[in-house]
Amino acid sequence: MENRIVLFSNIKGGVGKTTLCALFASYLAEKGIPVFAMDADLQASLFRHRQREKNVDPDTSAPWAVEMLNTSDGKKLEETIGKLKSVPGVVLIDCPGNLNDRNLEHIYKAADVAVIPMSFDADTVDATGIFIKAFKTISNAKLLFAPNRINTSEGKAEELRQRTQTTEFLGLVGTVLPRIKQSVVVKRYTTLYPLERNQNSAVESTFDTIIQELNIKE
Score class of each variant (00 low, 15 high):
A134L: 06
Y108V: 10
P194T: 03
G16H: 12
K142P: 11
E105M: 12
T18K: 03
E53N: 05
F207Q: 01
E196I: 03
L192Y: 02
A62I: 12
V90T: 00
A40E: 03
P34H: 06
G129A: 08
V66E: 11
V6K: 13
N148M: 10
T19L: 10
T206H: 02
E204Q: 13
P147G: 10
L69K: 09
D121C: 13
G89M: 02
D123I: 10
L42G: 14
R4N: 00
K181Y: 13
E30C: 05
R52E: 01
E168H: 14
V203T: 07
T166W: 06
L7A: 05
Y193N: 14
A44E: 06
Q165C: 15
S9C: 04
D41Y: 15
L7H: 08
R50E: 11
Y27A: 11
G129S: 11
E218Y: 04
N198C: 01
A22F: 03
A44N: 09
M118V: 08
S86Y: 00
D121Q: 10
E105Y: 09
N3Y: 05
E213H: 10
A134M: 08
M1A: 09
L92P: 06
T164E: 12
A37F: 10
L104G: 04
Q199C: 03
N148A: 15
W64K: 02
P194N: 02
N3S: 04
Q162F: 04
G171N: 06
R179L: 08
T71P: 10
V56F: 07
T60I: 11
P96C: 12
L104C: 08
Y27V: 01
A22E: 03
H49T: 12
L214F: 06
V176M: 04
D39C: 06
E78K: 12
A141D: 12
V90Y: 00
P194L: 04
V185P: 07
G13W: 12
A44I: 09
T164H: 12
L170V: 03
E53S: 06
T128Y: 06
R161D: 11
M118E: 07
L170Y: 15
G174V: 00
M68Y: 14
